[in-house]
Nucleic acid binder design. Structure first.
Lengths: 127, 127, 127, 127
DNA sequence: GTGGTCTAGACCACC
DNA sequence: GTGGTCTAGACCACA
């Protein structure tokens, strides 16, 4: 799977990285249980520091999306796409509420929001 | 409209402020063309620094949601809820894609996403 | 409150730090809402790196024990000693089970365990 | 006695192993003087590296919980559950103090701590 | 002033 | 080989 980093983006590097990995999983490019590149390997491939990759991985680990094993490396969690932390529900609600409110302020009414969601779901996964 | 700031939140103060104003507009608490409090007035009311309010207003102006007029003060844009900057389309797509991807990683499939969106739209628009 | 770091300990520096802060709170040396030293201030005081202190603070923040505010600094959570994350219950059970098992292997039966707990609670807090 | 290793756990493999053996002894599944599997045998049974089992056994020997004899193999110490190294007293105090402090920070007061200890002792000893 | 991010390079523990 | 810890020093955003 191809990962790209834009050093000029306002988004932090580690956030770009974790978002792209989430997207890769959602998209099916990365399967549950699949190995991810090593911290140092990915860092040198992307031309960024090892600690930045490490932080991206650490946040994904906290969210239960990947599994980190000190000596064996990093892999996508086997339960990703299935399990759901109860605490995550609140975070998800807050994020979606913010997106809805911001969308409404920019002229996206309910129908348009739903259509856009439909379209993006179709783009992400034929499955 | 009542604005609340949580100084213990991880979210920056100015971000909390702009998000709440967007929510207020979406919810119908703030109408297009309606006046907003002055920078100084809102700052003292919330007990926060003037620069913080100023920054929140500046980002909302940047997004075309409010109008700042040196002599006449601050008001909600008349075209809010209607007009849409083309540039915003890309940002909105990116944000929604991230939300969908993250949701999928946590077990929210398309149906659950849509149901949740429906529910939150009802909460917002039911006023 | 006095914090001490032993660079020769097997325990990581940031873990020593977070444990001592927890102890300080339990002991009443640090009260809910009280300010903690700045990241850089504490680092120079202890003669360790800023990032090490930062990591200790970050883990305590994750556990809901302290509040970190980018521009205002760090303080003990107002709800510490009261609130309890549901997820923490499992972690606590696991830690206590391990302690009980290890104690039994070294000749601490139930009575001795309870007496020791009693004694240490008395030492920690007259309250 | 059944030992289970979770390669996805954050805990190191050798630590999982030694903790489970301690638990087995506490629980009565392993009796003082009882033979333990050979390093090679246990490693192949669990599908892990020989060095990992060896390290787990070495730490248990260090703690005086098991006896390793080059020619006769490995067995649970005859004095386990009875004898106590004086050095262990300090370690035990430190571990319990940390557990108490962390518990207090999460709202477990003395009564709740004692009740939980009681409950877990009953679960362990009920065999 | 505060904490957060990123870089660079060291050493250690685990397997 | 892997990730984790610690150091040192830079720059940025927030208030």
């Amino acid at each position: 799977m191809l990962l790209r980093i834009d050093v000029n983006s306002e988004e932090t590097l580690y956030s770009q990285l974790s978002n792209q990995i989430k997207y890769g999983i959602a998209r099916g490019y990365l399967m549950p249980g699949e190995d991810l590149p090593s911290v140092r390997g990915l860092a040198s491939e992307l031309g960024i520091n090892m600690h930045t990759v490490s932080k991206a991985y650490a946040t994904l680990k906290e969210e239960g999306i990947i599994i980190i094993n000190r000596s064996k490396g990093v892999k996508v969690s086997d339960e990703v796409l299935i399990s759901r932390d109860d605490d995550y529900g609140k975070i998800f609600d807050k994020k979606m509420t913010e997106l809805i409110a911001e969308g409404l302020c920019n002229g996206y009414d309910k129908d348009q929001f739903m259509n856009k969601a439909n379209q993006l779901f179709d783009e992400i996964g034929g499955k």
